[in-house]
Each structure stands twice: as C-alpha cells, then as structure tokens.
Design a protein around this nucleic acid. Structure first.
Lengths: 214, 214
DNA sequence: GCGGCTAATATGTATAGACATATTTCGCAG
DNA sequence: CTGCGAAATATGTCTATACATATTAGCCGC
C-alpha cells in the first residue's frame, strides 16, 4: 500500500471537497496525516504544498494548515508571443513594420501581425533606449519587436492588462474593420532592474478570444 | 556555504538568462550539478523542477533537462468571484436578480452586479439542473449564482475566454451605456464528472480592465 | 538497413533523520 | 493586567539512500 504524493493529494482534495475538512478549518498536522495514511512526512508535505500552490490550502509555520476560505481556482496564462501563437494554430506568420521613430530616449514602433496573410493584431510599442541600447541598431523588419524582445530582454517583472476598446482610425485601417469596432486590447509593461524596458498596446482583430483552461 | 534550493534555482536561472546555457541546450545532469554546487541531488531536483514549472526548462526522464526554446513567462489568473473582487477594492458589493426562468433541464439567470451602487457587470448564466439539482431550490436573490456556485459546485475542469463585444440592448440598459459600446466579456464553462455544470457570459462595465502581474 | 528486444541511464519519487525558521504560547517581571 | 523574553511547535528544507519509471542507445538476428 505504498502511497505516492499524488494519492495523498487526491485524498486531501477529496476531504476538502466533501467538506470533511470544511473551509477555514485546521487540518491535522503533517506528522499525523503521515501516520494515518502510512507514508513519510515528506510525502504529505509534497502533497499539501501542491494543494497550497493551487489555492486549496493556506499554510503557515507553527500555525498549521487550514482549508482556504474560498478555494480560488487559478488558471495559467502565458505571455503571448504572436509568432508562436499563430504558428501553433497551423498558420503562417508574417509581420509588417508600419512605422518607426526614435529620439534620444525612446524607440517607437507600429507593427502589423498577420496570420495566413490576414490581419491578426496591431502592435503599438515604446522601447526605452537607455535600458536597452541594442534596440537602436536592430532591424525590426526581419524580426518583430515582439519576438526580439522576448529573446533578448529578460525582465524581472511586469504587468498585463486586458480591456475592450473601440478601434482607432489606424487600427481600423490595418485590421480591415470599421472604426469603433470593439477590439480586445492587451497592454503590457515589463521592467528590469534598470527600469521600464518596454510598453506595448496590442489591439487584436475583431472577435479574437483569449482562452484559458482551468 | 550550505545552499538552499532557491539559491540553486537562482544560479540556474542566471545561467539561462546569461546564455551560458543557451535555448535548446542540454544542461548538466542533476548529479553533476549537485557535485559542482555542493548540495544533494534532491536539492537540485527541487530547483530544476520549479524552473520547469515556470517554463524555463523542459525535463524528460532519461533524456535529461534542456533549456526551453522559448522561455515563456507565465502569469496566474484567479477565477473571478465578483463579490470578493469588489470588496477587495474597498467597495460595497450588491447584486440584483434581473431575470430567472427554468424548465426541466436548465435554470437561466440574469444578474446585475454592483460596486458602491454603480453597475459593475451583467451576468447571463445557464445552470444544468440534472448535474446540480440543488440549484433549483436555491434563493439567488440573497446570494448570487456566481458566489453560490463557487462554494457549492466544485468542478473538475473548465474553460475561460476573454473577448471584446458590443453592448447588447439589455446590457446597455443595465450598465448605463450606449448600445454597441465595447465591453470586455468573459465566457466561462465548468464541468464535473457528471457533465457541464454551468455556462456564464459576464459583460463588464465599460473600461473594465483585467490585470495580471508577471 | 530494419525491426525488435535488452540494458543503460536521467529524472521522479519515497524515506528517515536532522536542523532551520516563523509563530504562537506561556511564564515571569513589573 | 501588561509587556517582554523564552520555550514550544508546525511547517520548511537538506541529506543520503534506495528504488521506480520512462526513454534512449545499443545489440542482435535477419
């Protein structure tokens, strides 16, 4: 009856979902569970840690482990790289650099991303040249800024925001839709220790969906 | 110089980001790293496993560990429970049941969610009564379907989709905006072993943003 | 060269024991 | 009763060892 940590995890999850361990309640300590279930404490630890990472449990040293008051399910989302996103869907990726302008501090770019020749998204980006001077000498017609940055500008942290906005004039033109059409818009900023690397507004073609599995 | 697994993880991440271990390359096996860094193999395992979960590495038994071709950063998103979302922002939550209709198989609901009295989102939901018969006798004027389901209908898996859509007539009315205004829309379906539990379309008030930290 | 069986091997996991660390609890001084 | 420092304690982590498992590499017969 040698148990694996996944079995322990499944058993604990069963007890949570069946309310044998109701929300907010303390659960037995690791050593007790190990004894009850016939395995080592490290195995129980692995199982409970995984459940805590998934939001089912809250654990604190000395205070013990309790069931989360509202077990929130979490979904993972990857920071999108359009080229991969499109090629993964079995389509051909292309991009066109629409506009580029730079001054001492900033590089501004507008890029149209295409899937099988059809407009996929319009990208409006600012790159900080003091943080990332190499960007000034890069040819963004052969590799898109989106892709180049992912490969060459590792970031510490950043934010992503999804919202809905009416298509602006230039977006409407390039995405072949009427001005004002509701578009899904992603705004992202990334930072390194030296400061803000880039800020991008990505307007997706009409009816685009961002899908997550939970 | 006793190393913790987080130190090992940091060192490995440094080697990845500095291209000492370039994308696609095999990295030394756990036992070698353990010897080099002066710790037990289990500690290296813990560190590399964490990096693999974050998308930096790909690991396969016998084949070894290699740097991911495109290290994709991942963001975690929680399945939103509006009441908590609003109260966390320091506002008062309320909801109004706008419409309810049921037949033998399904319960249909429309709910308006309010933050400090202002429209926050309109929810259009279907609940499968064969999967969740208790829903038929529940009073959804005191607790919103959104909240009740999270607490009473644990699900196995599901999907979430964000998109942008023009406000439909009833949405425009309840969110006090012109018909056709771009709205951020979340569509979610959840399933248990017995089948689909619920399907919901949540249309957020204009200018709503979904924010993620990465 | 090809198909298939077998051995080799890197990661995955279980275990007992030890120590580290964050918190709480409790006793003591004031 | 109050505040503070010390002891108790549950989880966090490291170690060494052993075995499990997936997958590759290599051998063999044809």
């Amino acid at each position: 009856m040698t148990q694996g940590w996944q079995d322990i995890q499944a058993e604990a999850l069963r007890r949570i979902q069946s309310r044998e361990w109701p929300p907010g309640a303390q659960i037995p300590k690791e050593a007790e569970l190990a004894a009850e279930l016939g395995c080592a404490r490290a195995t129980v630890n692995r199982a409970l840690r995984a459940l805590a990472e998934d939001g089912w449990l809250e654990r604190r040293r000395r205070a013990g482990t309790r069931v989360a008051l509202s077990p929130q399910r979490r979904a993972q989302m990857v920071v999108p790289v359009l080229k991969q996103e499109i090629e993964k869907a079995g389509k051909t990726y292309n991009h066109r650099l629409l506009h580029i302008h730079s001054d001492a501090n900033e590089l501004q770019l507008r890029t149209l991303h295409l899937a099988d020749g059809a407009p996929y998204a319009v990208e409006d980006r600012i790159i900080a040249l003091d943080v990332l001077p190499q960007a000034a000498i890069q040819d963004f017609t052969t590799i898109s800024a989106n892709e180049w940055l992912v490969q060459n500008a590792p970031f510490d942290h950043g934010t992503m925001e999804y919202s809905a906005a009416p298509a602006e004039a230039f977006e409407a033109t390039h995405l072949s839709c009427p001005e004002g059409t509701p578009l899904l818009v992603l705004t992202r900023e990334t930072f390194s220790e030296a400061g803000r690397i880039t800020r991008v507004r990505m307007a997706y073609a009409p009816d685009h969906k961002v899908r997550l599995n939970i």
